[in-house]
C-alpha cells in the first residue's frame, strides 16, 4: 500500500532536480544512491520502495512533506488548509525575499509546513508536516501561524492533532518575530491541552532550536523517527562551547528515548500503523468518567 501511495506521480520522491539540492542524498546518478551512513549502493527504485530508508543499515533519509503525507494519511483524505498564507519580510532583511522565492521554486512548496485535515485508518485528524528543504524548515511568521491555525482547527473540530517536525530552528530573517512564534504556538497547544484533545508530535531528522523548544516538546505523545537528530542547541554549537568531543549517538532519537525525552522511537515503515494504533486506543477506547 505504501508503495502505491508513494509512487503516485504527484508525490514522486526522487526527481533529479530535487535530489541535487538535497545534501543527504548523493547525486551519484539517476539510478542509484550511495547511503550516507553505510555507503551501500542502493538502486533508487529500491530506495523509494523502502520509503527512503537504506535496506542495508536502516538509515532514514530525509523526505519531503508531500512524501510524508503520502505515506501517512489515507489515500485522497488530505484536505489542505491555510495554503494561501505567504511570508512577508517584516524586518526588510537583506536578500530574504529572494531566498523565499528560491525556496518556493526549489521545493514547489509555499512555506516550510503543510497543514490540513486528513484521516488515518479512517480516523479523522488535523495534520501538519514540516519540510526541511524549505529554508531549513525554519519557523517564521507563516510556520507559526499555520501551526497555530492547525491547533485551533483541532480545537474546533475536536480532532486529534498530529505534527511532523523537522527544523533548524527559528527563522533568522524574521528576527524576534520568529522567536515569538514559539510563544504563539505553545499558547495554542495549551488550549488543546486544557480541552483534553490529543496532540501527537513526530520528531523527524532534524528537529532543533526554537521548534524543539516550543510546540514540539509539549505534545501528549512524542514519537521520534529512527536516527533523527533532536536537539535544542545543535551538536556543532555544543562542541564549540565545551571544546570537547560529544558522546556516541548524542542527540539522536535513541539517546533521547534513553533520557526520557521521547515516548518511543519508530521506524518509518511502522509510523503510519503506530499512529493508527495510538489513535485507535484514544478514539475507540472507553474512558472512565467517574
Amino acid at each position: 500500500m505504501f508503495k502505491d501511495l508513494f509512487g503516485k506521480p504527484k508525490y514522486v520522491t526522487v526527481r533529479s532536480r530535487e535530489r541535487h539540492d538535497r545534501d543527504d542524498i548523493s547525486p551519484d546518478s539517476h539510478l542509484w544512491t550511495k547511503c550516507t551512513n553505510c555507503n551501500a549502493i542502493i538502486f533508487n527504485k529500491k530506495l523509494v520502495e523502502n520509503l527512503m530508508v537504506c535496506p542495508e543499515c536502516n538509515y532514514h533519509f530525509r523526505i519531503s512533506a508531500r512524501d510524508r503525507l503520502a505515506i501517512t494519511v489515507d489515500e485522497d483524505s488530505f484536505q489542505e488548509f491555510a495554503r494561501d498564507i505567504q511570508s512577508e519580510d517584516p524586518l526588510g532583511f537583506p536578500q530574504y525575499r529572494e531566498k523565499l522565492l528560491q525556496a518556493k521554486i526549489k521545493t514547489g512548496l509555499d512555506e516550510a509546513v503543510i497543514t490540513g485535515e486528513a484521516a488515518i485508518d479512517n480516523m479523522p485528524v488535523v495534520i501538519g508536516v514540516m519540510d526541511f528543504t524549505f529554508l531549513g524548515g525554519s519557523m517564521g511568521s507563516v510556520v507559526g501561524e499555520k501551526i497555530t491555525i492547525a491547533a485551533e482547527r483541532s480545537l474546533e473540530t475536536q480532532r486529534p492533532l498530529i505534527l511532523f517536525t523537522t527544523a533548524g530552528g527559528a527563522r533568522m530573517q524574521e528576527g524576534l518575530v520568529s522567536l515569538m512564534q514559539m510563544a504563539k504556538t505553545s499558547a495554542a497547544v495549551r488550549r488543546l491541552d486544557k480541552a483534553g484533545i490529543l496532540y501527537i508530535c513526530v520528531m523527524t531528522d532534524p528537529t532543533s532550536g526554537g521548534v524543539t523548544a516550543s510546540f514540539a516538546s509539549i505534545a501528549d505523545i512524542i514519537i521520534a523517527e529512527t536516527g533523527a537528530l533532536i536537539a535544542f542547541a545543535g551538536p556543532r554549537v555544543i562542541k564549540q562551547t565545551i571544546s570537547a568531543d560529544l558522546p556516541e549517538g548524542f542527540q539522536r532519537a535513541e539517546f533521547l528515548l534513553e533520557h526520557g525525552m521521547v515516548d518511543m522511537v519508530v521506524d518509518r515503515k511502522d509510523m503510519r500503523s503506530q499512529l493508527a494504533r495510538i489513535l485507535k486506543i484514544h478514539v475507540q477506547g472507553v474512558r472512565y468518567c467517574g
Binding site: 505553545s186 523548544a213 516538546s217 509539549i218 533520557h259
Partner: peptide
C-alpha cells in the same frame, strides 16, 4: 543541558 531536556524545559514554561 541537552540530556536533561533544555528544549522541553523552555517549551513547558512557554505553555
Amino acid at each position: 543541558a541537552e540530556e536533561r531536556g533544555q528544549a522541553e524545559a523552555i517549551a513547558r514554561n512557554l505553555m
